[in-house]
Design a protein around this nucleic acid. Structure first.
Lengths: 350, 350
DNA sequence: TTGTACGCGTTATCAA
DNA sequence: TTGATAACGCGTACAA
């Protein structure tokens, strides 16, 4: 298993290494005759291009990084698929890392990318990432696209969803169904996404002349369990609440549990809207009406933008905010599309 | 943003580049005094190690590839998390690619890994991958671990689950609940996993003196929709069937739909066991009893094995078959653990 | 088309 | 014992 080098191929073809290199990359003007000789030699020798040598010479690479905090989350799985597809289209290799919300792992990954001369990265930063992280990143001068988690730093490109509009749509839907006492459940207090979603929620209420009740806006951890716990206490205390906009689908699922525990049936005695459009939303009963954020599209757009930056696009940083869509299923007591109609349900293992 | 090289650091510290290199990697014998001088110079200069140069010189790298066919599938998301975690522990970078069942994309990825001198790979090959693909891979002489999809090639390491034992457990459970007329639903006819699962199913029936009825063993596509369609036709034709082992959870969810459509309630009039233990299993009603295949653990084990191969482990190829576990929920009319108890439900977006 | 210097860290050899 | 020198890995780009 000896590695064949350009020079060896060149010798075999009776030309110089430079010529072979140009043939390989379709550069320069090579006569048809020699080109064919070279191609034959390449084929015969079983030559494997050494990208490492090329990268060293070019001080660059064709490798980009993707940092997530939880790849097991279906939302990020979708996003990764979108990004991966886009990267392959441009012959870029994708490094994946899972920070698991650890700032240290996150830093290690970025450092590692730098050592490997990655040509760009897509980041969904860990919670509570210090500003110093982003400052250091800017100094690196390497294209970096932020995704999903909004960042208050105008120097970075960002691709995400319109949290504000999303909850506006959700809230309007509930108002149109006749609800007036609506709660907002979920999210952690220091989340930027949450601020935006609450903004959409309260502004829509106010447009209809309803004053938001701050006691009815509660935060939870990002789990079904905590969603259930918090919702139970909220709804026991304020039985007059008849509907809720949830920060995430996962929290909405918890609220469903809580409702049943206190003897109220979601979709009949209580209306519920989630956010994210995860696969599970369409599977529970009643199927959860939710705001879809087009995870795959976020990945695709991030990839497209990153690629343009790598190509040298020097335009000012962009914020690409994808429009959300309200997926109306059953949890608000009204079924526009049957739960079995979702494309999301066509998944499988193996 | 000029790149600092080893030589520049060396000059700054008043030593040679060789010395700095040795300090960086803790090799050779360097006096404490010079070591400290070098470390200081490294720190002051903001030096970034050039892994590419090192890789070129060493004819190796610290990069491994992971090939999947569907990263959006929760099962593979879990597996990826397990592998990613293991890779980070060993300072290896993980390339991810999604073949989407395309042999061409798969080949492109592997070729790309070769050009980049990846030091190993983990593959869940696309369906209908030709033997030539695996033959070519062997000639490359690079550590490759196969996962999940069983491969009839003793030359490759394999990490997966015990499909045979898994359906044996599922089938036994149904038999113990008193069922005699049991169907097997799902899987595509040319799947190796499916053969193994059917083996576990029929052998368990035979042990109890029940002859498997081949009309009750049907294949479906890997989607909820097709599962529902096939199940409806099967159960209409053979109403005497009272239980089913499903090839996948996703198919089991489809069977549930079909049951309701023909007026039978899963968990009460019909017992159902799935396979995979995907998140959705615990969320549907009744919660689906399923065979858990420890996706994360498969990833972790594959990573561990791959790392040992990279380190030079020359033992004969291994087949690591992880034991499945029967997760008994509600779909067989018996609830040992409440559906809300699953750790799987603690997920969230953002 | 080709010769050749170059990108940068590594390691074997040699000097002190 | 400690550290320096120089050849080397392999593809690229510019001058000839």
């Amino acid at each position: 298993m000896t590695t064949v080098t350009l020079a060896q191929v060149a010798q075999q073809a009776g030309v110089s290494a430079a010529t072979v290199s140009m043939v390989l990359r379709n550069r320069g003007r090579i006569s048809q005759a020699t080109r064919e000789r070279v191609l034959k030699a390449l084929d015969d020798s079983g030559y494997v291009y050494n990208q490492t040598a090329a990268n060293l010479r070019n001080r660059s690479s064709n490798q980009v990084g993707l940092l997530l905090h939880d790849i097991t989350n279906p939302f990020y799985g979708e996003m990764t698929a979108g990004l991966s597809h886009e990267m392959e289209r441009h012959d870029l290799l994708l490094f994946l890392a899972n920070s698991e919300e650890s700032g240290e792992r996150q830093q290690n990954f970025v450092d590692s990318l730098m050592r490997n001369s990655a040509c760009g990265m897509v980041l969904c930063a860990a919670r509570d990432t210090p500003p110093s992280f982003f400052e250091a990143l800017k100094r690196r001068n390497i294209p970096a696209i932020m995704v999903v988690r909004p960042l208050n730093d105008p120097d970075f490109d960002f691709v995400g969803t319109d949290n504000f509009l999303g909850t506006q749509m959700a809230t309007s839907h509930l108002l149109n169904m006749g609800h007036k006492n609506i709660a907002f459940i979920g999210g952690s207090p220091n989340s930027g996404s949450r601020s935006q979603r609450i903004g959409g929620f309260t502004s829509t209420l106010l447009e209809k002349g309803i004053s938001p009740n701050s006691d009815w806006i509660v935060s939870t951890q990002a789990s079904q369990l905590d969603g259930a716990k918090v919702a139970e206490s909220l709804l026991t205390r304020y039985p007059e609440i008849t509907a809720a906009v949830c920060y995430q689908d996962i929290v909405a699922l918890g609220v469903m549990q809580a409702l049943r525990k206190i003897g109220r049936e979601p979709g009949r005695d209580f209306a519920l809207v989630g956010f994210d459009d995860i696969t599970e939303a369409a599977l529970v009963q009643p199927a959860l009406t939710t705001v879809s954020v087009a995870a795959k599209e976020i990945g695709r757009m991030a990839g497209e933008l990153l690629y343009s930056r790598i190509r040298g696009n020097e335009e000012p940083p962009k914020r690409i905010i994808l429009p959300p869509a309200l997926v109306i299923l059953e949890s608000c007591g009204y079924s526009a599309t049957p739960a079995t109609g979702s494309a999301k349900q066509q998944k499988a293992v193996m």
